[in-house]
Nucleic acid binder design. Structure first.
Length: 818
RNA sequence: GCCGGAGUGGCGGAACUGGCAGACGCGCACGACUCAAAAUCGUGUUCCUUCGGGAUUGUGGGUUCGAUUCCCACCUUCGGCACCA
């Protein structure tokens, strides 16, 4: 090796320099250009927690590389960034450190913006959107108003999930785990009855199940589908003996004749009415106990079922039978109607309950492959699929028609109708917190609920608030802010003191990027028509049933209100995995396994960190941080630096060598291009490493002094540019090529150059590799087979036996079956 | 319990449509350079082996001339849901 005459590769001397120049030159500004095809690439915006962690880098770097690649491919690419800046941690910081949430948030944003700049991303910062800016949340409030005006927002008193630590209600999606804890602070939630604002996301349940036209990962679609939880069945109205209607939902209307009792949820309004005097004491005690128990206790699936008889009876509409009504906490008030018909022969829960309390078990379905069932002796419920029995007019209906026939029967006789039920609940958006977008509503003594007129928006958050540990929102404690006048009657009115769930803010940020300073509209129509929809959205799968569902709902609702167009906001979604600590655990301060990206950048430079995050993992999987693995990437970039800047070695680099070098070059280009489309970033880097190794050898043989080197360096650096923008720019400049590498087109593939002229044919005997044959590409099948049979090694394995069969796969192998 | 993802060398990971398993890198070993070390460069590196070979992609079966890839059953692990009628 010759001694290096050029300065060594020191990232810290080149990276900040180029970042400043790119910014000064407005290199990454994206503006409407009707001549070019647009590409809206978006990656999930961070919460300004204070510091960027390695996970942000992991999510953003490949997204940035791909955006850069698409730009070089000729697209007009929009790749914006912002901050999801409202939220609880700011208030916690306010209480803990006595700093105003606004101050804390904006200080963090300033810091994190600088951290992001150090990544060398191509964000167009002119388009930055910060959800806590009044110019932003003015429009969040405007969107709320439109939903309210159109009946998609409503206020209702209901039993809601309350986090006692965060002192606020939570959406159903924000309550997680078996113990039903708060997804943010992990405190088990409790139930509270409050009057709260909801959005009618359930109106869109069916449409949200339809994913046609969007390229989203299958697991995300399944997660959303399960979350929505659509079940088809029938709603059937039973009547109590007193004549009160008692509606139930069932997914098995074909088992109506097998209902031997009814069960009400403890909270069901009919409980009081039907309970007889004799049973009153027992029922009241049971209900009181059920309500006292936490949701966790009640909903434990392994708990033995309990319940009490109310003394009341209902009439089964299909056969006029008089069946007892029980109360039991295994029936939930929050699903269906809070009342069920129990068919113990064909439902395990009902079966257990019936056996425990000695209730009748009646078989109405006889599976063909089972001995004749007897309700009195059977040991468990039988999955209901088979011939209908004991069911009056339905008897003998084949299994596959039973459901339809039963619904028909019920409808014809006016007992009910086919119905669909969802697990999905309406979206609870009220939060009893300060640091959020105020719900723009007034309560007037005379006029009732009055939306703040659009032209009066934003309802500004007051800055002068105090945090007292009362658990009450600071907005409620503010001396004057709440009190105002009614825009309709001019009388006294009070402001809503709740703020909106921050998921409301993040449901539309992709629209605010279009025109973040727009004072007249939430977004500029021209910008919308050019850029929307989002072509690729990248981010974590943890948002599958929250943000990603809310933003789809939001889009569909506003499509119907004529505000946006198309059925979906984001055409393609890709999820990255998660980087774990070196111990294989989730990174957390308390575990002490956090990798600080700033430190990595100081040690290795941004380009190395970027390339390593793309190289070290399959992007969609993620995995543990392996200290030391990054060294390989650093060595590679060093080698690249030296290959291009060290003096060219002399040698006879003949036409054959040129051909082979060009072949490797264009084969790599082909693979790299393909891998961008597949989101397989690790093989992009490994391909470039492989090519660098090849180039290094070729250089030692004199390649760098040959004319072909011009093509090699131009293509190599352009392929490197999206991944390592700084070193690519620096080398590009040092080699005297025109600024900027990032405005160059993606290299053109010479398909002909990628072609091999010889191929290796694998020789197998009975599927086992025995030898290889190197032949010219155009060798005929006959010739290859002939050579295979004549091959010495093959002869040996054949051992004189005549081959029974010969498999030939063109260009790949010959398999000889003995 | 139900629904999804993932199981490949000491490690991170490759292998596109059923056709050379282990690309690329880490680590390790040896060598070159050096007074020496680091850095760099080179060689080797799945396991077993009687050196002929044999085994091998979580386990067991199946389909196939041929399976990391397709099918069935199971195990481990990560995530989601969980008395949803």
């Amino acid at each position: 090796m010759p001694i290096s005459k050029t300065p060594r590769y020191i990232p810290s001397t080149i990276e900040p320099k180029w970042q400043k120049k790119w910014e000064a030159d407005e290199l990454y500004h994206s503006d409407i250009d009707p001549k070019k095809k647009k590409y809206y690439a978006m990656t999930m915006l961070p919460y300004p927690s204070g510091n960027l962690h390695i996970g942000h880098w992991y999510a953003m770097t490949p997204s940035d590389a791909r955006a850069r690649y698409l730009r070089m491919k000729g697209y007009n690419v929009l790749f914006p960034m912002g901050f999801d800046a409202f939220g609880l941690p700011a208030e916690n910081a306010a209480i803990k450190h006595n700093i105003h949430p606004k101050e804390w948030t904006y200080k963090n944003i300033d810091h994190m913006r600088e951290q992001m700049r150090s990544m060398g991303n191509m964000f167009d910062w002119r388009r930055e959107a910060i959800s806590s800016d009044p110019k932003y949340y003015r429009w969040t409030q405007w969107f709320f108003n439109q939903l309210l005006k159109n009946g998609l927002a409503y206020r209702q008193k209901s039993l809601v999930d309350w986090c006692p630590t965060c002192n606020t209600t939570l959406a159903r999606e924000q309550v997680v785990g078996e113990d039903r804890h708060c997804e943010r602070c992990h405190t088990p939630v409790i139930k509270k009855e409050l009057k709260q604002w909801f959005f009618r996301i359930t109106n869109y349940a069916d449409e949200l199940l339809d994913f046609t036209g969007i390229d989203w990962p299958e697991p995300v679609k399944i997660l959303q589908t399960n979350w929505i939880g659509r079940s088809e069945g029938a709603s059937v109205v039973f009547h109590t003996e007193q004549g009160d209607p008692m509606e139930i939902f069932t997914t098995r209307p074909d088992t109506l004749w097998g209902a031997t009792f009814m069960v009400l949820a403890p909270e069901h309004p009919l409980v009081k009415k039907i309970t007889t005097t004799e049973q009153k004491e027992k029922v009241e005690a049971y209900v009181a106990d059920a309500i006292r128990q936490t949701e966790i206790q009640r909903e434990a699936t392994d708990k033995e079922k309990t319940g009490v008889f109310t003394g009341g009876y209902a009439i089964n509409p299909v056969n006029q039978e008089r069946i007892p009504i029980w109360v039991a906490d295994y029936v939930l008030m929050t699903y269906g109607t809070g009342a069920i018909m129990a068919v113990p022969a064909h439902d395990q829960r009902d079966f257990e309950f019936a056996r425990k309390y000695g209730l009748e078990v009646r078989v109405v379905i006889q599976p063909d492959d089972m001995p004749k069932l007897d309700g009195a002796t059977m040991l468990e419920s039988v999955p209901a699929h088979g011939k209908i029995v004991n069911s009056g007019v339905l008897d003998g209906t084949p299994a596959d028609q039973a459901f339809g026939e039963a619904v028909k029967y019920v409808e014809e006789h006016g007992m009910g109708k086919g119905a669909v039920n969802y697990r999905l609940r309406d979206w609870l958006i009220s939060r009893q917190r300060y640091w959020g977008a105020p719900i723009p509503v007034l309560y007037c003594e005379k006029c009732g609920v009055v939306p703040v007129p659009d032209e009066d928006l934003p309802v500004l958050l007051p800055d002068d608030v105090e945090w007292k540990p009362t658990g009450e929102s600071p907005l409620k404690l503010h001396p004057t802010w709440r009190f105002t006048t009614c825009p309709i009657c001019g009388g006294k009115a009070e402001r809503e003191t709740d703020t909106m769930d921050t998921f409301m803010c993040s449901s539309w940020y992709h629209l605010r990027y279009l025109s973040p300073d727009d004072m007249d509209a939430p977004f500029d129509q021209k910008e919308y028509d050019y850029w929307m929809p989002v072509d690729t959205y990248t981010g974590g799968v943890e948002h599958a049933t929250m943000h990603l569902m809310y933003t789809r709902f939001f889009h569909k609702a506003f499509r119907d209100l004529g505000v946006v167009k198309g059925n979906e906001p984001m055409l393609q979604l890709r999820n990255q995995g998660q980087i774990l600590g070196p111990d294989g655990q989730r990174m957390s301060k308390s575990r002490g396994n956090v990798i600080d990206p700033d430190e990595q950048v100081r040690m290795y430079g941004a380009d190395t960190v970027r390339a390593f995050l793309m190289f070290g993992y399959r992007w969609a999987e993620g995995g543990p941080w392996e200290p030391g693995n990054i060294n390989g990437v650093q060595r590679w970039l060093n080698r690249v630096w030296n290959i291009f800047l060290d003096e060219a070695e002399q040698g006879k680099f003949d036409a054959e060598k040129v051909k082979l070098l060009r072949r490797k070059l264009h084969q790599t280009l082909k693979a790299v291009t393909n891998d961008y489309e597949r989101f397989e970033f690790n093989t992009i880097v490994s391909g470039l490493m492989e090519l660098a190794n090849y180039m290094q050898e070729a250089k030692a043989e004199g390649a760098a002094a040959a004319p072909v080197w011009k093509e090699v360096r131009s293509i190599y650096l352009r392929m490197l540019a999206p991944i390592c923008p700084h070193i690519a720019e620096e080398l590009w400049k040092q080699l005297g090529l025109p600024y900027s590498i990032h405005t160059q087109p993606w290299p053109e593939l010479d398909e002909q150059a990628t072609k091999e002229d010889e191929i290796t044919i694998v020789l197998q005997v009975n599927g086992k590799l025995r030898d290889k044959l190197v032949v010219p590409v155009d060798t005929t099948e006959e010739k290859v087979k002939e050579m295979a049979l004549a091959n010495e090694v093959i002869q040996k394995y054949l051992d004189g036996a005549a081959p029974r069969k010969l498999i030939y796969v063109k260009g790949r192998l010959v398999n000889i079956v003995k």
